[in-house]
Structure formats: structure tokens, C-alpha cells
Amino acid sequence: MKLNEISDKDGSVRSSQRLGRGIGSGCGKTAGRGVKGQKSRSGVSINGFEGGQMPIYRRLPKRGFSNAFFKKDYNEVSISCLEKGVQFGKLDVTKPITAQTLLKVRIIRRIRDGVRILGGSEAQSKFYLEVSGSSKSALDSIKKAGGAVKIVEG
């Protein structure tokens, strides 16, 4: 195969709809834009405009606070997901399970700000976890099964 022989698969690329090419094309005359006026022209940006009236997003007061800069984005892993990993032989419960371990066995796709364990089901295996956080129900379930959770930062 040569560079000049490389092409897309047949049918993978569709040509764009040609607008305003007569009544037989199915998209002639108004070209799918309706009828006359500002919105039928190109380059229109009047979303939120209320005809001279003060727009609703300016009438209502600003509310709340978003601390997005310092917000943590955790990978959330449920106990049932860990149980499936043990069931399919991907996770070894004799060794501590860390974020790197979960990444290696493809339970998580990437390590963000850490891993947080969520409950929702009872743990049957003895898990020894080193994670960034855990819900109270998950912590209770793991301790009841004989495992342990060590909270590590980052």
C-alpha cells in the first residue's frame, strides 16, 4: 500500500446538502430556513433578545457560587464493579488495590483526582483498598466482609 492509495471506507463520508438548488432538490427556494427576515440571513445571533425588553437573564439576580477551580473530579467505582473484577480474575484481593491497579485492569480509564468507592451492594470479598475516598455505606460493607480501606491523598 502506498500513501496515494489510502482513502476512507466507502460510504463513510457523505457530501454536504447543497442548498438553494431548485425545487427538485427538496431544499430549494428558502433552503430550509423558512421565509424572510433576519433569521433567514447568515450570521444571526439574537438568542436571548426579547425585542427591547430587558432579557430574563439580566432581570433575575445572580445566585450561587461555583468553586470549579478547586473542585475535585474523582473516579467513582462501586463495590459491585470491584466484585466483578474479582469474579473475572482481574483483581487480586490478597494485594492492596490502588488507583494504578484499577487502571491496569481497565476498571477505570484514567486517574483523575483519585478514586472514590461507592456502596450500593454488599461486599463478599476481603478488599484492601488504598483510595482517595469512600462512602459510608461502602466503608461499612467492606469492613463487615473483613477488608480495610486506607484513605490516601491524590
Rank of each mutant, 00 (worst) to 15 (best):
C27S: 10
S40N: 05
T101C: 02
D73I: 12
Q53F: 15
T30L: 09
S45G: 08
V13I: 15
L102Q: 01
R33Y: 09
L118V: 14
S12N: 08
S125P: 00
R58E: 15
G32D: 07
A31V: 07
G119C: 11
N75Y: 02
G28T: 09
V86Q: 01
C81F: 03
G20V: 06
G32M: 12
T98N: 10
V86P: 01
L103M: 12
Q87A: 14
V115P: 00
Q17D: 07
C27N: 09
K36V: 09
G20Q: 07
F88G: 00
I23M: 06
I107A: 02
D92S: 11
Q87I: 11
R110L: 08
F65T: 15
G114P: 06
I108F: 02
S66C: 12
S25C: 06
G48A: 11
I97V: 13
S16G: 09
K29H: 10
Q124N: 10
K29E: 06
G34V: 05
Q100N: 12
G22E: 05
F65R: 14
G22D: 02
G85S: 03
Q38M: 13
P61G: 08
R63L: 15
P55E: 04
T98G: 03
Q87R: 14
S125E: 02
S42M: 11
S66T: 10
P61L: 04
R41P: 00
P55G: 03
L91M: 04
G28K: 03
V77P: 00
A68C: 10
K36T: 14
I79L: 14
N75A: 10
R14V: 15
C81M: 12
G34C: 06
I97Q: 01
E50C: 09
F88H: 06
N67E: 09
D73H: 13
S80D: 06
G120K: 08
G32H: 07
P55Q: 05
R59C: 04
S80E: 08
G32R: 12
I97K: 00
G37N: 05
K62N: 07
K104E: 14
F69G: 11
S121P: 00
R18F: 03
F49H: 10
V13W: 05
S15D: 11
F69R: 15
I108M: 02
D73A: 06
D73M: 04
G114I: 02
I79N: 01
G48S: 08
K36G: 10
G28S: 08
G51K: 07
K104Q: 12
S40C: 12
S25Y: 07
T94V: 10
I117T: 01
N67F: 15
K90T: 04
G37M: 04
R63V: 15
S66W: 07
L103T: 03
I46M: 10
T98W: 04
S121V: 12
R112F: 06
Y57N: 13
R14A: 12
F88A: 04
I108G: 00
L82T: 03
I107M: 08
P96S: 05
L60G: 03
T30M: 09
S42F: 09
F65V: 14
